[in-house]
């Protein structure tokens, strides 16, 4: 008999305690961010898709060693370069990133010994077309510097 009533009362008390907590929460300010109207600032180390880094002249720092291409687990990087007449260094002619396959692991940046690629801070990437994610990074670099 005693257990019966004590269970009822302790049960009721636990319910009241719970309700008090949610009532307190009710009057606390909101913690959510109104996404399209407000946005978060990406942290400095945010890993977006990669982007080529330019040197002082606006040319890509890339020396076409192909380490990133080899390191990429998903094979989303294809790059080409050619040796112009009379030059010792190769020059980058195309750097394509297939972002549909990229898993943002960062192996390419890790593997680059010349500091030629970095992460972009872009995250508002949405499209209904697959082709929008075949990035031509060289072109993007030129666009930024023109």
């Amino acid at each position: 008999m005693y257990r019966y009533f004590s269970e009822i009362f302790s049960g009721l008390w636990s319910l009241i305690v719970g309700m008090r907590i949610t009532l307190v929460e009710f009057f606390k300010p909101n913690i959510t961010l109104h996404y399209p109207h407000q946005t978060v600032k990406m942290p400095a180390r945010y890993r977006g898709h990669i982007e080529l880094i330019a040197d002082e002249e606006g040319k890509p720092r890339c020396v076409v060693c192909g380490m990133c291409e080899k390191a990429c687990p998903s094979g989303c990087i294809t790059l080409e370069g050619e040796k112009p007449e009379g030059s010792k260094k190769k020059v980058l002619t195309s750097y394509k990133l297939d972002f549909t396959k990229c898993s943002l692991c960062g192996s390419c940046v890790d593997s680059c010994n010349f500091g030629a690629v970095e992460y972009s801070k872009e995250y508002n990437l949405a499209s209904t077309r697959k082709e929008d994610y075949h990035f031509d990074l060289l072109k993007r670099l030129e666009d930024r510097h023109s």
């Binding site: 942290p43 400095a44 180390r45 945010y46 890993r47 898993s103 943002l104 692991c105 960062g106 192996s107 992460y119």
Partner: peptide
């Protein structure tokens, strides 16, 4: 997630 994003760069599938 914010803390980990700050050091790893991603929120869920950290590498």
């Amino acid at each position: 997630l914010d803390l980990l994003e700050g050091i790893t760069g991603s929120r869920l599938t950290y590498c």
